[in-house]
Design a protein around this nucleic acid. Structure first.
Length: 886
RNA sequence: GGGCGAAUAGCUCAGCUGGGAGAGCAUCGGUCUUACACACCGAGGGUCACAGGUUCGAGCCCUGUUUCGCCCACCA
């Protein structure tokens, strides 16, 4: 598809092309009939209303890395994609559209409204899927699911009915969290708490039959319209004789009792609490204990209802103002204080929720939670990083019954029918036609729908065709890994655990990898209101998908949030450019080279550099696999980054230029073979992280390979390479020499253009041999014109000197190097080495250290001390000579 | 109130089972050395938050403290 690499790295030129190609070729498709070992991931289904944000980008990049890596390691990979119908969120979107037309959903009616939502979904609900494709997500799109699909709806109904039959689903009339804007109940999880500045009003409640008052404090004075009692602590001496007396509740004309309950905190406020059982969770419990009346004063929009007397029709905050004003006018407002209190808000629209008395459907989740706890304790499901286990347990242990009914229209309608004749509730898998008890056909279906999270809780098996027994389920369930953010640990992960165990008899995933949050460069959460949002698509346009993915992977260290900035992405774009150019270099020098499928290394005349890079490659391959195995994405990314740039490009390519440009055919062939081998394997290693650039380059490599796409190639695991520890050590010794010479040149300001003379004075013939083997490298990379290597050389007088192991580097000054500069440089160097000598001397003269430390450690340190001492002696001698020259 | 996490170079962070502190960016000096200036070569820079303890040896283990961040919880 590509024949030659363009001059510059232009990701826009090929990313879309390759994605389409992969998809058309069916490379993303998972075959449940395959005999390969399975590896499966279900996507956290983004909301249909969703637009790709950084969270999605990170989440899906990490999943794609796993999917591509596992595909290349010989697994049959299923990455199951889809979207969530997102009940309230989606309904809100369409309601807003209606509002723009001056209508609300009741104007159009339930059926027409739902039709409209579907229409909306068809037109604009799929954009996030296309955005995921731009990210390179290798999902099996042929299997794409939607939580409102027919199949998934069947699963939802099956689960609901089974749970009902097991007695785990029930209805009850109790206080729930009510969103007056969305007009629906919410589960506890769907309420976000936020500390807000507010007021605490102290109200005087007249005591009947006296001219005295009892002062009560409240943050919501309007609820006094629904007060059923005033409570004091039973052991509060101030009030013992008031218990049993009666309050004449102002503004209502009602009389309510003063009761004693040890829930009341004597120290707080006045020690007396107004009790409004229909509008406060604590008061509700107390009401039950004392048989108090529940007086609901609000309608479902948060306006005062008929129980509010004169206040009927007022919006809740208007009512609050009026109640306060009226009490004040009556002299019943004791005082107002500033008060910080936690206000519950709807997680979808941020409206302050109201505790509201209503009849709702619940799941008794305790029995399910017990098994979900055990599954993690026993290791059937492993949570990574492990510390999240504690959070998971904490929530599971304290789990409350789950309110699953929502008073909205968009969602899975609860399969329950009420008999208008006998009142029986019929819950059934098929739409009921008659009452299960009296057979009356006078039925009314429940209008409530289920919590969105009810259907997403079934995602790992509903997407694979459950309740049918499908091949997909038997091949791919339980899934291998779930990749998700901690923000939906309770909402989603916990529910999937419970539902999976209950209905599949097996945990839904073996591993749960929990990743961090993506924040802005300052560590702030990205939000539209703060204006600090970085749009992934903009980033992709500017830097390319690969650079973006590499950035995310490189920063995805466990347990720490990612602070993202475009500069950083730019840095990883530079990496892509580096890889691109290194590949161009390789290709330019591979003319006439025909790669073979396997290489007989011993048939080649491998150089020291060749042996070194092959050995390093093998190590890097093992490290990369180990890092991915442990979900240490950052380690994998950084290992590959450093190897590619600083070993392959900075050193290896420079080292082989001589062989490539030279006349020695054997040397050239071996350099070509190795540069091809390393580059080709490196591309495969990088592919899961940077899929596009690796495919583009891989496709232009000379020769043919056994598969048509890098996606289908084997992932390198350190096999088939030559590993030569001796050559590696020798190469590294030569590199040390080169670095030392460069250092002197740099320190002395010797221009790179200036070729200089150098002597390498070796103590041993072994070192001398190594230096001789590496002499061309030293000449080229340290820019040495005349290089003399020998044992115990006669040293010239005016030299700059450095010591590298047992090799002394001598650079004749001769008009090049200034004596003062060399003195300064030596001074610095001597100080450095002196520090080492002191440190090791001290350490080794510590008797306890010598007595207790392992022999290896001792030997190592002794060696280091000896080397440092030797080096110091030589440098000091050199210093004497320099001083003598002055 | 309970729980969790973080504190390491100017900035952002690595540092896996305790053995002489690392990277990227930024800074400074030098280079158009025929793949790459989105580059190359070199240099400087740290009491690893604080105080104790364990150990021959602590960034890492233990105890306490401080400062940030997050999650959960019914205090009117």
């Amino acid at each position: 598809m590509a024949d030659e690499l363009a001059k510059g790295y232009e990701p826009q030129e090929f990313e879309t092309k390759w994605y389409q190609h992969w998809e058309q070729q069916g490379y993303f498709h998972a075959d449940e009939k395959s005999t390969k070992p399975p590896y499966s991931i279900v996507i956290p289904p983004p909301n249909v209303t969703g637009v790709l944000h950084m969270g999605h980008a990170l989440n899906n990049t990490l999943q794609d890395i796993l999917a591509r890596w596992k595909r290349m390691t010989g697994h049959e990979v299923l990455w199951m994609p889809g979207t969530d119908h997102a009940g309230i969120a989606t309904q809100n979107v369409v309601e807003k559209q209606l509002a723009a037309e001056g209508k609300d959903r009741h104007d159009v009616g339930r059926e027409a409204f739902i039709e409209r939502v579907w229409k909306w979904r068809e037109e604009s609900g799929g954009q996030i899927i296309n955005q995921l494709k731009r990210l390179g997500a290798s999902c099996d799109w042929e299997r794409e699911r939607f939580t409102m699909d027919a199949g998934l709806s069947t699963a939802v109904r099956e689960v609901f009915v089974s749970l009902y039959e097991d007695g785990l689903i029930y209805r009850d009339n109790r206080l729930i969290n009510w969103c007056p804007r969305c007009h629906t109940a919410l589960s506890d999880l769907e309420v976000e708490h936020d500390d807000k500045k507010g007021s605490m009003w102290h109200l005087r409640y007249p005591i009947k039959g006296s001219d005295q008052f009892l002062v009560v404090a409240t943050t919501r004075p309007e609820t006094m319209l629904g007060d059923s009692a005033v409570a004091v602590h039973p052991e509060d001496e101030r009030y013992t004789d008031l218990v049993g007396k009666v309050i004449e509740l102002p503004l209502t004309g009602r009389e309510i009792p003063i009761i004693a309950d040890d829930y009341v905190d004597k120290e707080f406020g006045s020690g007396a609490v107004k009790i409004t059982p229909a509008h406060d969770f604590n008061d509700f419990e107390m009401g039950k204990r004392h048989n108090l009346e529940n007086i609901n004063i609000l309608d479902e929009s948060g306006f005062i209802n008929e129980n509010g007397g004169a206040y009927q029709g007022l919006e809740r905050y208007a009512a609050r103002d009026k109640v306060v004003a009226d009490l004040d006018a009556l002299g019943l407002l004791d005082k107002v204080e500033e008060h910080l209190n936690s206000v519950g808000e709807c997680y979808r629209c941020k409206t302050t929720i109201e505790p509201y008395l209503s009849l709702q459907w619940y799941v008794n989740v305790q029995p399910l939670a017990k098994k979900a706890i055990k599954a993690v304790e026993s290791g059937q499901t492993r949570i990574v990083p492990q510390h999240w286990e504690k959070t998971y347990y904490e929530w599971m242990y304290n789990i409350q019954d789950w309110c699953i009914s929502r008073q909205i229209w968009w969602g899975h309608r609860i399969p329950a029918w009420y008999c208008e004749d006998c009142g029986e509730i019929t819950v059934s898998r098929e739409d009921a036609t008659c009452c299960s008890k009296c057979k009356s056909t006078n039925l009314r279906q429940e209008t409530d729908v289920l919590d969105t999270w009810f259907s997403s809780g079934l995602w790992p098996f509903s997407t694979m065709g459950w309740p049918e027994k499908t091949d997909a389920l038997s091949k791919f369930y339980p899934t291998s890994c779930l990749v998700t953010g901690f923000d939906i640990l309770f909402f989603w992960v916990a529910r999937m655990m419970m539902m999976g165990i209950k209905f599949m008899g097996e945990v839904p995933f073996k591993d749960v990898y929990i990743h961090a949050l993506v924040r802005d460069a300052q560590g702030q959460k990205m939000s539209k209101s703060k204006g600090n949002v970085i749009d992934p698509l903009t980033v992709i346009d500017e830097f390319g998908t690969d650079a973006f993915r590499l950035t995310l992977a490189a920063f995805a260290a466990q347990g720490r949030d990612i602070k993202l900035s475009t500069e950083r992405i730019g840095g990883y774009r530079n990496f892509c450019n580096k890889l691109w150019n290194a590949s161009r270099f390789a290709m330019m020098n591979l003319e006439g080279f025909v790669p073979t499928e396997t290489v007989q290394w011993d048939e080649l005349n491998l150089s020291m550099a060749d042996r070194w890079i092959l050995s390093r490659m093998a190590a890097v391959e093992r490290e990369t696999n180990a890092a991915l195995e442990g979900y240490r994405y950052n380690e994998a990314a950084n290992t590959l980054y450093a190897f590619t740039w600083h070993e392959f490009c900075d050193w290896y390519i420079e080292l082989i230029k001589g062989a490539l440009y030279g006349d020695d055919a054997a040397a050239k062939l071996s350099a070509q073979t190795v540069v091809y081998t390393v580059l080709e394997r490196l591309l495969r290693l990088l592919h899961p992280v940077t899929p596009f650039i690796t495919e583009e380059i891989w496709q232009t490599l000379p020769g043919t390979r056994p598969v048509a796409s890098i996606m289908l190639a084997d992932y390198p695991q350190g096999k088939g390479l030559l590993e030569d520890a001796t050559a590696t050590a020798q190469m590294e010794q030569v590199m040390e020499i080169i670095r030392a010479i460069r250092n002197i040149r740099g320190e002395m300001d010797v221009s790179p253009a200036k070729k200089i003379t150098a002597l390498l004075d070796c103590k041993t013939s072994a070192d001398c041999g190594v230096m001789t083997t590496g002499q061309e490298y030293i000449r080229a990379l340290a820019r040495i014109e005349e290089l003399t290597i020998g044992v115990e050389l006669t040293q010239p007088e005016q030299i700059a000197k450095q010591v590298c192991g047992e090799v002394e580097i001598l650079l004749p000054l001769a008009g090049l190097i200034n004596v003062e500069e060399e003195e300064k440089r030596l001074d610095k160097e001597i100080a450095k080495v002196q520090k080492d000598v002191d440190m090791f001397t001290k350490k080794l003269s510590n008797e306890k250290f010598v007595a207790n430390a392992p022999a290896q450690v001792l030997e190592k340190d002794r060696g280091k001390l000896a080397a440092a001492q030797e080096k110091l002696t030589v440098l000091k001698a050199s210093m004497e000579k320099i001083l003598a020259l002055k």
